[in-house]
Design a protein around this nucleic acid. Structure first.
Lengths: 147, 147
DNA sequence: TATTTACTCTATCTAGTAAGTAGGGTATTG
DNA sequence: CAATACCCTACTTACTAGATAGAGTAAATA
């Protein structure tokens, strides 16, 4: 299950990817636009900033903006950051491997085998999808209205 | 995350797939073999029986056995049964679709788009893997010792 | 430099759920 | 009829997601 944190994070990042990178967005405006509880979003954006995904500016005219190009921000990083490893079981994780206490021999464990495939399939999708590619696919469905 | 219930269920089913289908296995023996708390396993096997995956026999010489051929029992059914839909978000589920309250237009929602791909990738793996196919792949790694 | 704006950080609350336990009930078989 | 082994309900415990509160700090501008 994707947590609300991860979900809100992706929505907020997509919204930021649609804006000028030099023009920061305020928490309150983002929250209203994406229907996210403002204080909760605050926590999320702070986390994204500490991970180096966002940068912030304080004071009047301040807010958050992307720290790098949307084509270099991948969903895999965001989801792992809030929800931990992609693998359904720790013994199938690439980034946070942990042995199962109840498993005698991983090489002949059916659960391990199957879940490693699930992890690989998931990682292929999420580590292959950037904010930019996601945005361009959304725009294919509904092109932005020119001014 | 895969729940322990689902994980134990798969392990138990694989163990049963290795045995004669006419010779039931007792909860206690299964629990010992797979390192599962016996009372917890009892709950799990009962569930599998109610879903028609297992059949049981009471009294002396009783126990559990598979209700159908291992090639016709898919991991997708087992995982869904214990952990619910495969999709990371309800709006991406095929078997248990539910609209997001905070989503204005699903067709242009990046989260929806990406998570639908994750769900499809996961389903492809789990609905394509039967107990029989999983077992045969385990045996490729370590062939069973003949008597 | 005073004031406003807006991010920063820590603590707390609540409801829900996963994991496991307890114990009595019921059907079968020898 | 006695032993075996499944059947079923209820409960406990610990953890976590999701959210809220409020005081603190930095920056901009009038």
């Amino acid at each position: 299950m994707l947590s609300k944190k991860a979900k809100y994070a992706i929505k907020a990042l997509l919204a930021l990817a649609d804006c000028d990178r030099e023009e920061p967005m305020r928490i309150a405006d983002l929250a209203r636009a994406e229907q996210i509880p403002p204080k909760f979003l605050e926590l999320i954006l702070l986390g994204l900033k500490n991970q180096g995904v966002l940068r912030s500016r304080k004071g009047k005219g301040g807010g958050y903006s992307l720290a790098r190009d949307p084509s270099e921000i991948y969903l895999g990083q965001i989801v792992r950051m809030f929800d931990g490893p992609l693998a359904p079981v720790p013994c199938a994780s690439q980034t946070a491997y942990q042995r199962c206490a109840d498993c005698r021999n991983e090489a002949v464990c059916g659960v391990h085998l199957a879940m490693k495939e699930v992890r690989d399939a998931t990682a292929r999708v999420l580590d292959g999808t950037s904010l930019a590619s996601l945005r361009s696919r959304v725009e294919q469905v509904s092109p932005p209205v020119p001014l």
